[in-house]
């Protein structure tokens, strides 16, 4: 063994000989500072633009903080939280939020999966077709909401017009005026909007499914359904689970479509947590809005922790 080769382990391992353990702290300090220096701009930006506003917002949650009257913003403890939890609209908002997430997510996943499988195969003009499918994701959610608001308009909207022309209805359906139908309408709009994201993510994940495995399964006589559940889904399961998690968070925090289509009405029946929060900000009551925001953050943190633990457990088993 040469002198050089005997020195390498000492310098590279923490539990090495005396020379190595003496040099390591110096190495860490110098390079650590350099790394920190390079990271500092990002830390400053993230701290300034993300965490500082979050802390300011969290502070407002414990104050009587109304933008229309900032002459006094006293500390009021948990009063804002109590106001929100005791509001008669709160149970409706929670129920709607769950319905909004589940009702949007499941169809988005299924249709997005189907689209991704269809787009995986090579066919003529596949690129154009892909671009058309992915296009909605590039459009503002608020704009989508405005478009669907007119589409679902009872008297002038295309939905009732088409349903009438094919003979399914005799009289216009007041989609956005009926509490139940209004929720259906906003969910339909969100499904249309969000399918694209699942299609993009799943299509990307499908590229990781080995072709030879599909071919081998095919030669062994496996049908398409068997291949889907025994090869494709298990291979991309981690991507699917993380995409679902992301979408749950995003849909939960996505007020644009509802706000543009119904404004949370009629009579609060389509309010979800985030549209309700916008109502408070429009009142200038940032105290209530921030308290509600903190509740949302807390809920999503707990939910994500349980979800990720469940994924890990399933992965290990």
């Amino acid at each position: 063994m040469t002198a050089a080769s005997t020195e390498r382990p000492a310098a590279a391992t923490a539990g090495g000989g005396a020379p190595g353990s003496r040099r390591r702290p110096a190495f860490r300090a110098r390079h650590g500072l350099t790394i920190l220096a390079f990271l500092a701009p990002a830390i400053v930006f993230v701290g300034w633009f993300t965490y500082y506003p979050m802390l300011r917002g969290a502070n407002m949650a414990f104050r009587d903080w109304n933008l229309w009257d900032l002459t006094s913003t006293p500390f009021i403890g948990f009063d804002n939280f109590a106001t929100i939890l005791s509001d008669p609209v709160f149970p409706t908002v929670v129920r709607n939020s769950v319905l909004w997430v589940v009702g949007s997510l499941v169809p988005q996943l299924l249709i997005g999966f189907a689209l991704a499988l269809a787009l995986r195969k090579r066919f003529r003009f596949r690129g154009v077709y892909q671009a058309l499918v992915f296009f909605p994701w590039a459009v503002s959610g608020f704009l989508i909401g405005m478009l669907f608001r007119w589409m679902f308009n009872a008297e002038f909207g295309v939905v009732n017009d088409l349903l009438g022309k094919v003979g399914l209805i005799d009289a216009p359906i007041p989609w956005l005026a009926d509490p139940t139908l209004a929720m259906v309408a906003v969910i339909v709009a969100n499904i249309w909007y969000g399918v694209t994201f699942f299609a993009i993510m799943i299509l990307a994940a499908l590229q990781s499914v080995p072709e030879e495995m599909i071919e081998a399964a095919s030669l062994d006589g496996a049908g398409k359904v068997r291949m889907l559940f025994s090869i494709i889904i298990p291979t991309i399961s981690m991507t699917l689970l993380l995409t679902v998690l992301l979408r749950i968070i995003w849909i939960f925090n996505f007020p644009d479509i509802i706000y543009a289509m119904t404004g949370g009405g009629p009579a609060n029946r389509t309010h979800i947590v985030t549209t309700w929060m916008i109502n408070f900000t429009q009142q200038g009551n940032y105290g209530l809005a921030s308290a509600l925001g903190l509740c949302v953050v807390g809920f999503l943190l707990v939910f994500c922790a349980f979800y990720l633990m469940a994924i890990r457990k399933a992965d290990q088993s």
């Binding site: 308009n153 009872a154 008297e155 216009p172 007041p174 005026a177 209004a182 009405g265 009629p266």
Partner: peptide, 12 residues
């Protein structure tokens, strides 16, 4: 008025 006017705002 039309029944859907429950949700009519300025644009409608």
């Amino acid at each position: 008025s039309p029944p859907s006017a429950v949700s009519w705002g300025y644009p409608e």
